[in-house]
């Protein structure tokens, strides 16, 4: 039981990372009905920035600076590569984001250099005992960060004018425009938010040990998460993220007991298997809204 609960704790930590990433995906999707495959690159950029900044300023100062910088980067990418394509087929825009991902990832990766890097986080492998269960501090931190960021996002959408505009635009873009919502601002904000979220997620994905440029692969796990949660559901993203994280951790812990013949860690494919199972029953994910088709 302890092992199980510890796995759950571990899972909540990675799940929080997934949830943060997934929130970024969903925000962009809600704004422009596009999946941005550039999120992994923004995540990597965030990690690289923090790892450099942490050398000069401390970790706590490095994170907000890096988040802001990545948000700006995302803003620039949106302006240069995405805005001209607004109105084109969503798939085409999605592939453009793939191109952006490749480019940003190469540039960010170049800064990682030959040897592994560290984000200089204060938690390392330290554990904290919660009700008899050992939980890595970094997982606790990730969970707290996710809750805080989620709360801030909620407040942002609920209480700020631009948040309201984004909600309106997500509901009905044309009606929102007619009401004076600047859709361009909505796009830009959504990209900046998503970029910042990716950077935050990256920081927590990179805690606990040295990393190299292949860390970006973590972000791919957010794709089944958003499908599972429903592409347009922020709450779904958080819940599905935590769910996937926990399932993944539990499978990793018990895989050898259940199926001893399997050598390879099944963790990475668990999200996809869960996603496919759910899609068989609910083609729009757990919390997604059904697309209304007009012919």
């Amino acid at each position: 039981m302890t092992a199980f609960l510890e796995a759950v704790g571990e899972g909540l930590g990675t799940g929080s990372v997934y949830a943060l990433l997934a929130l970024g995906f969903v925000i962009i999707y809600k704004a422009m009905q596009v999946i941005s495959f550039a999120q992994p690159a923004f995540m990597l950029a965030g990690i690289v920035l923090v790892s450099y900044l942490a050398e000069s300023v401390n970790f706590w100062a490095a994170v907000p600076i890096a988040v802001a910088a990545v948000a700006l980067l995302a803003l620039a990418v949106e302006r240069v590569a995405i805005r001209p394509m607004v109105g084109k087929a969503v798939f085409v825009i999605a592939i453009i984001t793939l191109g952006v991902d490749v480019v940003v990832r190469v540039v960010a990766g170049a800064f990682i250099g030959v040897d592994p890097r560290s984000v200089g986080d204060p938690w390392g492998q330290e554990v904290v005992n919660v009700a008899g269960i050992d939980m890595a501090q970094r997982n606790v931190a990730a969970l707290i960060a996710m809750v805080v960021v989620g709360g801030l996002l909620f407040a942002f959408f609920r209480f700020t004018p631009i948040g309201l505009a984004m909600r309106a635009s997500a509901l009905d873009q044309e009606a929102a425009m007619a009401q004076g919502v600047n859709v361009g601002t909505v796009f830009a904000t959504s990209w900046a938010l998503a970029g910042g979220l990716a950077a935050v997620a990256g920081v927590f994905a990179a805690t606990g040990g040295p990393i190299d440029q292949n860390i970006w692969i973590v972000a791919l796990a957010a794709l089944p998460v958003i499908i599972l949660g429903g592409l347009d559901s922020l709450g779904g993203a958080v819940l599905a993220g935590l769910l996937i994280g926990v399932v993944q951790a539990v499978v990793a812990t018990y895989q050898r007991d259940w199926v001893p013949s399997l050598e390879t860690n099944a963790g990475p494919i668990v999200p996809y298997l869960v996603m496919m199972l759910v899609l068989l029953v609910r083609p729009y994910g757990l919390f997604g809204t059904k697309e209304v088709e007009r012919v």
Binding site: G209, I211, I215, T253, E263, T264, N265, G267
Partner: peptide, 17 residues
């Protein structure tokens, strides 16, 4: 205990094993 390339998240199951 087979492992695979990747940081902490990929090694969790290795550690468990």
């Amino acid at each position: 205990v087979p492992s695979e390339p990747g940081a902490a998240d990929k090694q969790a199951s290795v550690v468990a094993g």
